[in-house]
Amino acid sequence: MVLQQIINGLTIGAVYALIATGYTMVYGIIELINFAHGEIYMMGAFVAMTFFRLWGMPLWAAAPAGILAAVMLGVTLEYVAYRPLRRSPRLVALISAIGASLFLQNLAMKIWGARRQPFLDPNRPLEFFQIKHHVSLPVLGEATFSNMQITILVTAAVIAILLNLIIKRTKVGKAMRATAQDQVAARLMGVNVNRTITATFAIGSAMGAVAGILVGMNYNQVWPMMGYMAGLKAFTAAVLGGIGNIPGAFVGGLILGMAEGFAGAYISSLWMDAIAFAVLIIVLIYRPSGILGEQIPKRT
């Protein structure tokens, strides 16, 4: 029973982690909570579903199509909704983000309808992902998990490693870190800050779309409001880990997923969301900078 909750919690936590990274990277660079990020996740899932189920393309083509669409959407969003407001008070950009979020939810309803619909094609079942495994361990008990759950965990792990390499080793990653630490100094080093912000949105959106596609496949459904709650939870995870801190987003996502898994099993599944937001409130009260967040005040 415990093992089952750990596995379930890690799976949902990995999804939160993927989405939370998009929030935290954008916040780290332009100090904006991109409230439309949940909708990028939703749009990625919808576009992949459209290519896969509606147009009958193979998954290996549909998934990248969804990711690419999300990247283009995220980059456009920054260009249209946030860049013109970069010198405005932060609240103005935040309102623009909420507006963009509502716009994208309604756009999805206009294109695909408001109802929940399946991601998978019944005529082309992806049998590999349905295969279930059973394990039994002393103390931790028994658990059942599917290849889909393994896929989610492995994908999140691979992306975490790739992202770490990008941030640490590549030119764009160094530009992102420098811009996050001191934007003027980064410009004085010759970093093109606009291009760096675009790259940040692109990477965050790609990760959001991956999460959306994995969730769509796992629960076999997509719907226009799917990004709303997932986005709020991932935002909670980002704050929990320390907003602006990328490893923190992963830690926060996994902790939140586990907390939800255990709350669902031992308290009530009705309380899962309440537990998640209670975690957010407790963190904001006792450790507003998050688990891995910087304690030192930002330079002005």
Binding site: R177, A178, Q181, D182, R299
Partner: peptide
């Protein structure tokens, strides 16, 4: 850059 090492700061100079 406060959270970059001395070496990384120097590499940023050569960006």
């Amino acid at each position: 850059f406060p959270r970059m090492s001395v070496q990384e700061n120097l590499e940023m100079g050569a960006f």
